[in-house]
Structures are given as structure tokens and as C-alpha cells.
Amino acid sequence: MLVLLGVLLVVIGFALRLNPLVVVTVAGIVTGFLGHLSVIAILNAFGNGFATSRSVTLFVLVLPVIGLIERFGLQEQGRRLIARLHALTTGRLLVLYLLIRQISSALGLASINGPAALVRPLIYPMAEGAAERRFGRAIPEAMREKVKGYSASADTVGQFFGEDIFVAIGSILLITGFVDTTYHLKLDALNVALWAIPTAICAYAIHGTRLFLLDRRLDRMAEAAGLTTRPDKADAQEAGR
């Protein structure tokens, strides 16, 4: 039972937000000693573990090209493409953004956008702008908070359940690296990545539906706050102008 202390160390260390690399290293050494391994056996385990799990770190090869195109305006071009969605309602805009985020993450662009580069400067202002078009500028704080929370969630859900379809992402390479090293399997990264597709579809269906229903939720909140809701037609006309 004593060897389980290593697991406990990982849990406590991560929960206390200590440096994870240090936590994992210490937990490994402690586990080795509790399992009555000699110092050399522990060092060998670290060495063999590192050598056989290098595939996990192969994503580094992608960084030079990503850095290069970022320097030449990748994020800016992403912003310009997203800005074309400005005529939609809050919910529909976020449904579409969720899809864009999932597909671009699945193609290996998980790192280009995110909360700082897209949600704060673009998606949230557009989502809020759509709500203001519909309910007027005086929408209550609670509604703005709701729109903010859902804007952030569209980005996070889209990234999480898109990136695993791309082979060069940490989680996929961790899976193959870990099980190949530990259990001497030979898993193909692409095969593992393809098994992420069914969950990605479920995630889009579930979160997309909830984002779609956000419009109705905002309608109810506006009604409760005594705001008049402009009909969809006026919306469409204004968008057409």
C-alpha cells in the first residue's frame, strides 16, 4: 500500500499548484524508493522513460513555422476572418465560433487564437454588440456577464474537443508515449487522434445546442429586466444595411 504515496504526492502537489515538473520528478523518486528500487534502478528508470517517450516532445518541430507565420500576422488575419461574422445574433455567432475553433484546432491551429487573441478583442465585443442590437444599450450587468461566460466557454470547449484530432498535440503524444513506454504497445498517433472525433461531434452537439439556446435565455432575462426586444426582422434589416 505504501507505494501509493507517490500517487498521493502527485495529487497534493498539483492541487497545491507547486511546479508540476518538480512534483512529478519527486513523486517518481519517492515511488521508486518505496518500491525498493536501488538508486541506479531509479536513475535507469528515468533514463529509459525519457529515451522511449521522446515522441511526446516532437511537437517542438512545429514551433519554428508557427512562430514565423505569427510574426507575419497569423493572429491578425484570424481576427479579420472572424470579424466577417458580425451580422449574427449572440447565440448563433457563438455556435459558429465554436465550430471554427474546433475545426481550426483539429487542423493544428489550437494555439493561434484563444481568449487573449480572439475572445477578448473580437468575439465578446461582437456577441455583446449583437445583444445590444437586440435589447438596446442598457442591458443589465447580469446579461453581460452571461454573454462573457458563454463567449469564453465557446473558445475553451472548441479548443479542448478539437485539438485532440490533430496528431502533434501534447495529449495525443502523451497517450502514445506513455502507453508505448509503459506497456510496450505500438500505438499509432493518428489512430488515437481519429478516436477523438466521436467525442468532438458530441461536444459540438451539446455545447452548440446550449449556445443556440442562449438567445432564448437572454430574451427571458431581458423580459425580466423589463427591456423591449427588437424582432428578428429588424435585426436582419439592420445587418443588411
Binding site: G6, L21, A45
Partner: peptide, 25 residues
């Protein structure tokens, strides 16, 4: 440092197995 974390976790897994953690859990 996060660049090497996944590799260290894979190593930890191997140590867990060598020390019999998997069997215990």
C-alpha cells in the same frame, strides 16, 4: 519547463509500474 512535462509524466508512469503502483490501485 512545460515542454518536458509530458515526457516526465510518461517516465512517472513507468516508475509507477516498476514499483507496483498499478497493481495496488
Amino acid at each position: 519547463w512545460a515542454a518536458v512535462l509530458p515526457q516526465m509524466l510518461a517516465t512517472l508512469g513507468q516508475l509507477f509500474v516498476a514499483a507496483g503502483v498499478g497493481k495496488q490501485v
